[in-house]
Design a protein around this nucleic acid. Structure first.
Length: 278
DNA sequence: ACCCAGGAAATTC
DNA sequence: GAATTTCATGGG
């Protein structure tokens, strides 16, 4: 990876297959906002940064060189060759080839596991705009302040001490008790998130599904976006429609070891072409 | 008023 | 066991 570091800014050269708008606004994360100049500002792992694409180069600031290596290059998955994966996926099915081309700037982020768990618990029977609002209120109410008006995602420990009534201000409705159960089980170790990185897929999924409010779809999303299990293939309402209409002859297993990346291509392509489904 | 939103739990058949 | 209903909240 070729990059330069000047003061507090990292400039990564020739970043292929990364479109910030596609990646940060495709429904895998909920804490990034686009600025007037086209850059995006967001918070992850308790740090607030701005990222911008200029030509083929990616700028990140404020970021130290150490933080870039220990955190952000992994967060934006800069070491995985998406061009190779896209070509492999394109051979599976002509419609997947079309979707992969259309959504070619999407990358799978490495988000904080506990945050990913909470945000996808919140996502159930909900829409992306409202999810962002709930997550924002959750952080402001219970997260640690990191600089001016920016808040880290709350820790499991902090949330485990809360009651359903305490969560009322975030207005997540019936999901409040799910969030409390999640925080308590993660904090106590009843749910051991560390096993989810490498355990056999079904085992990792079962670990997450110990939490009330975490079913197959939420677990699959958390494994994909929080643990970088790129074989995961979450089936939400859009993907179920896409499988029926666009890939009637295929089953999820046909998408192979990078099914999760295929899933993002198909999800984005489908959402941007609702007419395909009547 | 009605319907839907990156679902899952609770209830009913 | 498989199908249906319910669960808060907000926007179209």
């Amino acid at each position: 990876m070729d990059y330069t570091c000047v003061k507090n800014t990292i400039q990564v050269h020739n970043v292929a297959s990364l479109d910030l708008a596609q990646t940060l606004d495709c429904g895998q994360c909920f804490r990034w906002v686009q600025n007037d100049d086209g850059s995006f500002s967001g918070i992850a792992y308790g740090r607030q940064i701005t990222v911008k694409k200029e030509g083929k180069d990616l700028f990140l600031y404020p970021v130290t060189e150490e933080e870039f290596h220990s955190l952000w290059k992994g967060y934006f998955d800069l070491e995985l060759d998406y061009g190779v994966i896209r070509r492999r996926l394109s051979n599976i099915h002509p419609v997947l080839k079309e979707a992969a081309k259309y959504a070619s700037g999407i990358r799978i982020l490495r988000q904080e596991p506990f945050e990913t768990l909470c945000t996808f618990i919140i996502s159930q029977n909900n829409n992306i705009k409202r999810i962002k609002g709930i997550v924002s209120r959750l952080c402001e109410a219970f997260g640690k302040e990191i600089g001016e008006g920016n808040f880290a995602f709350p820790t499991a420990e902090a949330m485990a001490a809360l009651t359903v009534e305490d969560l009322q201000p975030i207005r997540a409705g019936f999901r409040h008790r799910y969030l409390i159960d999640c925080a308590q089980k993660v904090h106590s170790g009843t749910v051991d998130l560390s096993v989810c990185y490498a355990a056999p897929y079904e085992e990792a999924r079962a670990e997450l599904m110990k939490i009330v409010g975490v079913g197959t779809k939420v677990a699959d999303c958390v494994l994909l976006y929080g643990f970088h299990r790129v074989e995961s293939f979450p089936l939400d309402v859009w993907m179920k429609k896409a499988m029926t209409v666009l890939f009637p002859e295929l089953v999820p297993a046909d998408f192979g070891p990078y099914a999760g990346i295929a899933q993002q291509y198909i999800f984005h392509y489908s959402r941007m072409h609702p007419g395909l489904f009547g």
